[in-house]
Structures are given as structure tokens and as C-alpha cells.
Simulated scan of single mutants.
Amino acid sequence: MTGKHHVDADVDVDDRGPDTSGSAIRSLGARDRPDSGGRARGRADSGGRADSGGLALARGLGEVLLTCGVVLLLFIGYEVWVSNLFADRKQAQAREQLTTAWQRGQDPLKGEDRMNLPIGKQVVLPAGQGFANLYIPAFGKDFARTVVQGTSDRDLDAGPGHYVSSQLPGQLGNFALAGHRVGKGQPFLNLDKLRPGDKIVVQTAANWYVYAVLGSRPAYLAAGGIADPAKREAAEVAALAALDSQGVRGREIVSPEAVHVIAPVPNHPLATPARALLTLTTCHPKYSADQRLIVHAQLSRAAPRSGSSLPRELPGGTI
């Protein structure tokens, strides 16, 4: 959530003509052979030094690349595994603190998450404080995250963070959350796997809220019958991107500056909301922050919390 000999042998020819004198031959031999050998050794030494320098350069470059590779692996290891360990610890603390508060009859939201509460009603919460739990059955039966207030780096290290300018669960408007895609707990690692109609469940001190991902579910189901993988994928993407009656898509990919996706009516900042929505945002693609992956869902039903009973959308749920 990456840089860039061929050696010719000299041949000495003596053109002074033949010499029958042994002394001359001996003299030539005594005089020229050492010189010729010296020149040959000089050339060999020069080539050796060139080869040695090339090997040293290659060896040095290899060591630099190896070091860079090790550093990169360590960085990835930290981002993906070590940061997850720290984030999991912070998430566990947030969840424990919220559970304790609820057991003591304390509601961080002060009951302001009532259905159809007029837009604009906000509750002042300390940054990083947990106030709700998030369940996404499509991510597995064990997926549960405590939602904290705020979207700073520090807040998101503890779990999915609530955009403080957006609405609360169940309220008219848009309850918007941000979460890491890879590393630091990676709560929204598989956000791209959500399909039209998939349920997202939010638990507060008083209520359960069940949201359904927008998009055309019939079109998505029909796409599953397309044999060609490329065409099937294109049809599924189109089904998720289908606009509803208020011009809101189930899924979209936008630039980081596209803040209008968390407006009370996503992408229509001047529109008056008439329903409760949920928006999840994360980085896109994985291992990059170039863009944002956005999923929108609509509140389909709500139920008051009753003891340890769970909504039927969760494993073992009955209410």
C-alpha cells in the first residue's frame, strides 16, 4: 500500500632481413625477447587491472542492491506484520474500553444514534475513543472491529475511524468511516470483495444497524453466469457502479481529494438526505495510496439491542 573487451594481440615483425650470425641471433634474442615479453606482460597487467576494476564495480553494485533489497524487505515486513501487531493491540484496548463502558451503562454516543435523527446532530467525542462495533460477514465470521472517533494516523492505527463531520449510525445522512487497506490492522483489506446486497452491521450501546451495499444485485448475479472471465468481471464492476435513485453508486474509485464521497448524499453535496447511508473508504490499489476505494451502503433495518442476542445477519443471530 522500485535501477537502471576484446583484446587484440600485437605481432612484432623484424624486417631487417635474415642474419646468419649466431651472435646476431643471440643478440636479438637477448635484446628483444625480454622487451617483447615485457610489453606482453604490460598489456596483460593493464587488462588485469581493467578486469579487476570491473569486477570490483560489479561486486560493489551487487552489494548495494542486496542491501537495498534487505532494507525493502524489512520495511515491508514492518508495514505488513509488525505494524499489524501494534495495531491489533490498540484495537483490543479500544474494544475492551468500549465493552467496559457499555457494561457500566455508559454510552459514548449519549443515545444520539436514534433512527431518523435530523441531520447535523453531532456528539463531541475525544479523538480515538471507541463508540461502536463494525461487523462485515463477507469478511468472515470472526471479523469485528471497534470504530473510533477521528481519521488521523494515530486514530486509524487503533481501528476504522469515523469522519467527524459525517453522521452517526442510523442518522439521516452518511455515516462515513476510513480504514487501512494493508498493514496497521488492515481492517479494509478486502473491501474490494464486497458485492451488491452484502450486509454491514453496526452495533452501538442501544441498537443494531444493518446496512446493505448499493449497486444492482440482479445484474451482479446475472454476471456470474458469463463464461468469459474478462466480460464477467466487467459486468460485475458495472453492477457495483450502477447508480441508484439518488445517484449513488455501490462502489467507486476516486482521487484522495474527492471529499464529496462522504457528503450526506455522496457526490451530491447540495442534496438533502432522505435516508441513512454508510460509506467505507480505504486506499487503492493495495500497497498504494494513489487513489481511494469507496463502498456505499444503505440502512436496510435496525433493531434494539437485547441482552446478548445478535441480528440474524450475523452467525447465530436471531433478532
Rank of each mutant, 00 (worst) to 15 (best):
A212N: 06
Q203A: 10
V201N: 01
N207Y: 07
L214S: 04
I200Q: 09
A205T: 00
P187L: 02
R181D: 00
A227H: 12
N207T: 00
G225L: 12
G215P: 12
V202Y: 02
Q203M: 09
P229E: 08
G224Q: 15
L214K: 08
A212I: 01
V210S: 09
P229A: 03
A223T: 12
P218V: 10
D198R: 05
L191T: 11
I226N: 13
G183D: 07
L214C: 02
V213N: 05
A227Y: 10
G224C: 10
R181Y: 05
G185R: 08
K193P: 04
G224F: 11
S216F: 11
R181M: 03
K184I: 00
A222G: 15
S216G: 15
V182H: 02
V213Y: 00
A205W: 02
A206C: 02
P187H: 08
A205C: 01
H180A: 07
G224Y: 10
I200V: 15
T204G: 03
V182K: 05
D192C: 06
D228G: 02
V182G: 01
G183S: 02
L194P: 05
G185Q: 06
I226P: 11
R181P: 03
A205Q: 05
T204V: 00
R195F: 02
G224E: 14
H180F: 03
N207M: 09
D228I: 11
K193A: 13
Q203L: 01
V213D: 03
A219L: 15
R217E: 14
Q186T: 04
R181H: 08
Q203I: 01
K193N: 12
H180L: 10
P218R: 14
L221K: 15
G183K: 09
G224A: 12
G225S: 14
G225C: 13
P229T: 01
V202H: 03
H180Y: 01
G225P: 11
K193M: 11
V210E: 06
K184D: 00
W208Q: 13
L189N: 06
A206K: 12
G183E: 04
A219G: 15
I200R: 09
A223S: 12
A222P: 12
L214N: 05
R195A: 13
L221S: 09
G185Y: 00
D198L: 07
K184W: 01
A219V: 14
G183V: 05
A205Y: 07
V202T: 00
A227D: 13
I200Y: 07
Q186A: 13
L221H: 12
